[in-house]
Design a protein around this nucleic acid. Structure first.
Length: 867
RNA sequence: GCGGGCGUGGCGAAACGGUAGACGCAGCGGAUUCAAAAUCCGCCGUAGCAAUACAUGUCGGUUCGAGUCCGACCGCCCGCACCA
């Protein structure tokens, strides 16, 4: 043992310099003759929020492992990086600390880029851009104009959270318990003119396309399908009962339902407080009060749905379409939204939980019409739970005896005959409101003219640049308050007009950046058709599960819309062929007696409990949660890399936990990874004697004994670890490498054969380790005197004859419990396996001398003797 | 509230429906050391001297065989359209 230590402070920068000189991160030239199959790896680009911590590193490390693995496996790899740089936090920072959002953002980008480089992530930085670069958002404005021309962008109105004290629109995140986060004022709801993108035009395609995404997690596809929410149902109109007083001009209420089969169980009709009928009845004290309460909930769906179900009886009644003389009360309620369906529903309490809760509260009739299987129609009582499952229709006239699915058809047919309604398909998905009343975003390229209306900014006048001289000392949108910026001549008639002061939702920025990466300098349009055709779709996209719905759906939509406008040629419309959703890095939280959060380096353990470092203050330790600056449970990347090295961070965040699950950052786990690095190094430093690494021929004896065992183990490890990387089981790949290190270190005869086998195993180890711990692997390669860079070498191959054993050990079960093991030739015929199993000594006592009823043999896996 | 997911030793985990606990951490014992750190070797689900029994959030089901499939429940996590 030489005792030589691996010095990451010396090795990591040196190895990175060698990579840089060899340009291992460069994207291969499109036009070269010997192009290989392409592979586009992309991590969701980050919001430049400040310094990164070790928690951020996991996403990029995973992408880097994939990129390095694919590069070695013979692909032309594109692995770019950029910055999702517009958004609220920069504006908040400007308001709180002064300065300009642009300055704050650029400083963060500089820092984060350095830190990513420190981690050794092999990114082609030549393609870097930030969404706040005018050279990027200029093309986004161009895309917006195309959408406008194709009817995919339009103006409408929608509700926003309004802070009456700050006179500003609040994000849902900025509404805390119904109050503005800064002012504390009760939030109001306002209806504003806004820009929308017509995502609903692609609802069917977006839903159907999910079926083709075979390399997406099933749960993400399910969530998106539910979000789009295509449903078949019926629109029908309940005619107002002429004997009740109705507002002039309103003769009926149109509702949408997915359950026309339950129409005979209807006991009320419920309208949104914003429904035209309810508006026509106002002002009226009880309705006004309900409207006020609804408005105070804000616009978030969660708040609305969690609120207690409330309603006001309008006093109006409507007539049942199927039953002459039967009328239903009409309520205004707080749980029906104007934006979904027709803004009105009929309630069938027996078969819908929400309707049942409402009916119980207001003492409305509960009439079951679907009889659960096996239930008795005479004694069936609906308690606190609605029956939403299958059954047989009863109490339902012409539908009696049908199952719900047929009853739906029959009810729709009858409605259509009566002229009272028709079958239809609707979507839960709403058009995408992209207007934001904020400064730090992409300006919407439109001018509002008193005579010409909304006029697109001519293409030759793009980009509409954000003004830099803005002030954040007053609330509201700085663009709106800017003294000159918005005042321009109408592009059409030349009369004085004003610019649109709304900017685009930052989800628009991230909905097409992956396409721009294929040629970020292209001047002929948003996307270079040649480069996009070469590189798209992204072969492997990596990011957090929190983006399962919105970001991914918007990107799928924009890709289709761009294809529709001829901006991109991607008939599938699917930008991401493979998707992997990674888990977060978590850490315990620490809290001082006075309630302030403490950084991990501010606490220490003494006598089994945690104390504030150097004091006698006890520390409250909280459970591990996602690393975040606000809770201070973060480990700074620069400090960590200085102390342990980038590779220890890389190994740690990928070992221990499956990549799609969270991993808890612990000091002990870090030490384990650091120990592994040193073990690898000592194997390298101590390697001497005959070795394939020096070109020595295999000595006699490598085909037997320990040498053969080690060779088999090493080749098996390459096979398993390769499959693990390919299948995103990075934790298992690393566990296999740990096991290989243990195996190389195991005692054995001190002979040339084993020494040579160790050299072979060491080479295979380093080559498979290279994507995970690239600095260590290349430094070790150099230390072994090998020429060139591991980072540029092809992926190692294993010898199938060594990776497969010719005997297998089978467990023998009796009655499903393991009683013995037999070792037998791989692929032995079934009767030989049965004979060996029945003769096994440990099996005999369990047979009691009887003949088994049955013996189940799973070839090369298991034997089960059934008595 | 609605939609989606997860739950296995003291801890992170592994396990094509086929030997539950690979690999790592912690712990325990030993070697080395004047001593400690580091390093190395061994043990390590629970009960039991052992044979064995019991163990994958809880309860039930399918199967020769269930951590894995099905149903109900409990707990935690993600999303809910203006955080990114």
């Amino acid at each position: 043992m030489s005792g030589e230590r691996y010095d990451h402070r010396e090795a990591e920068p040196r190895v990175r310099a060698r990579w840089a000189a060899a340009r291992i991160d460069a994207t291969p030239d499109l036009n070269r003759g010997d192009a290989r199959p392409k592979y586009y790896v992309l991590e969701m680009f980050p919001y430049p929020s400040g310094r990164i911590h070790v928690g951020h590193s996991r996403n990029y490390t995973m992408g880097d492992v994939i990129a390095r693995f694919r590069r070695a496996s013979g692909y032309d790899v594109l692995h770019p990086m950029g910055w999702d740089a517009f958004g609220l936090p920069a504006e908040n920072a400007a308001r709180e600390r002064g300065g300009h959002p642009d300055t704050w953002t650029r400083e963060n980008i500089t820092q984060m880029k350095q830190q990513l480089q420190l981690l050794g992530i092999a990114i082609d930085w030549d393609r870097e851009f930030a969404t706040c670069d005018a050279s990027y958002y200029r093309w986004q404005q161009d895309i917006f104009l195309h959408f406008l021309e194709h009817g995919l962008a339009y103006q409408g109105t929608s509700k926003v959270n309004w802070d009456p004290v700050d006179n500003t629109v609040l994000a849902n995140e900025q509404v805390v318990d119904g109050r503005g986060w800064r002012s504390g004022a009760l939030v109001e709801t306002r209806e504003l003119r806004q820009w929308f993108l017509r995502i609903t035009a692609f609802a069917d395609e977006l839903q159907d396309g999910l079926r083709t995404l075979e390399r997406w997690p099933e749960r993400v596809r399910t969530m998106q399908a539910n979000w789009i929410g295509r449903s078949r149902g019926a629109r029908l109109t309940f005619a107002l009962d002429p004997s009740t007083p109705a507002p002039a001009g309103i003769e009926g209420i149109e509702v949408y339902t997915t359950r026309p089969d339950t129409l005979f169980g209807a006991s009320f009709v419920a309208c949104s407080v914003d429904h035209p009928l309810i508006q026509a009845l106002r002002p009226r004290a009880d309705l006004d009060e309900l409207k006020r309460r609804v408005d105070q909930l804000g616009t978030s769906q969660e708040a609305i749905e969690r609120a207690e179900k409330l309603g006001v009886d309008t006093g109006l009644r409507v007539m049942h379409p199927f039953v002459a003389g039967r009328t239903l009360p009409v309520y205004a309620v707080n749980f029906v939204l104007m934006g979904y369906g027709t803004g009105a529903i009929f309630g069938c309490p027996a078969h819908d939980q929400r309707d049942l809760d409402f009916a119980r509260r207001y003492d409305l009739e509960v009439l079951p019409v679907v009889l659960p299987p096996g239930a008795d129609p005479a004694s069936l009582v609906i308690g606190d739970e609605a029956h939403t499952g299958d059954g047989t229709l009863f109490n339902s006239d012409f539908l009696d005896g049908m199952d719900p699915a047929s009853a739906r058809q029959a009810a729709i047919a009858r409605l259509e005959t009566l002229g009272a309604g028709q079958g239809t398909i609707i979507y839960r998905l709403r058009d995408w409101g992209v207007s934001r009343q904020r400064y730090w975003g992409c300006p919407i390229p439109v001018v509002h003219c008193g005579t010409c209306g909304a006029v697109p900014v001519p293409r030759d006048q793009l980009p509409v640049l954000l003004p830099t001289d803005v002030s954040f000392d007053q609330p509201g949108n700085p663009l709106d308050q800017h003294p000159t910026w918005k005042h321009v001549a109408c592009p059409k008639c030349g009369a004085p007009a004003v610019r649109e002061t709304d900017t685009l939702d930052t989800f628009v920025d991230s909905a097409w950046y992956f396409a721009r990466f294929t040629n970020p300098d292209f001047e002929g349009g948003p996307v270079d058709p040649v480069a996009a055709a070469r590189w798209l779709p992204v072969d492997q996209y990596v990011g957090g599960i929190e983006h399962a719905i919105l970001h991914l759906l918007y990107a799928r939509f924009v890709t289709r819309a761009m294809h529709h406008c001829g901006l991109i040629d991607l008939p599938s419309g699917e930008p991401f062929e493979g998707l992997f959703t990674q888990g977060m890095v978590t850490h315990e939280t620490f809290r001082a007696p006075d309630g302030t959060w403490l950084f991990p380096q501010e606490v220490e353990e003494r006598g089994g409990t945690m104390w504030r470092r150097g004091t006698d203050q006890p520390v409250v330790v909280g459970p591990p949660v996602k690393m975040s600056k606000s809770l201070r449970n973060v480990v700074d990347l620069d400090h960590f890399v200085n102390a342990y090295g980038a590779d220890v961070a890389r190994i740690f965040v990928l070992s221990d936990s499956p990549p799609d699950r969270n991993v808890e950052w612990t000091p002990n786990g870090v030490d384990g990874a650091a120990r592994f690095v040193q073990r690898v190094w000592s194997l390298v430093a101590d390697h001497a004697g005959p070795s394939p690494l020096k070109g020595d021929a295999a000595p006699d004896g490598v085909g037997e004994g320990r040498a053969l065992e080690l060779r088999r183990f090493a080749h098996r490890t390459v096979r398993a670890a390769t499959a693990d990387i390919d299948g995103f089981r990075f934790n298992k790949a690393i566990a296999n490498l740990y096991a290989l290190v243990n195996e190389i270190r195991r005692d054995g005869p001190n002979d040339d054969a084993l020494t040579w086998a160790r050299g072979e195993a060491l080479e295979l180890l380093l080559r498979v380790l290279a994507p995970f711990a690239p600095h260590l692997a290349d430094a070790a390669w150099e230390r072994l005197g090998q020429p060139g860079l591991l980072a540029a070498m092809p992926w190692p191959e294993f010898d199938p004859s060594l990776a497969t054993d010719d005997t297998v050990t089978l467990p023998v079960q009796v009655g499903g419990k393991k009683r013995a093991e037999i070792t037998i030739e791989r692929g032995a015929p079934e009767d030989a396996v049965i004979a060996a199993a029945l003769q096994a000594g440990d099996v005999q006592p369990w047979l009691n001398g009887q003949t088994p009823r049955k013996v189940i043999v799973v070839p090369d896996r298991i034997v089960n003797i059934v008595m």
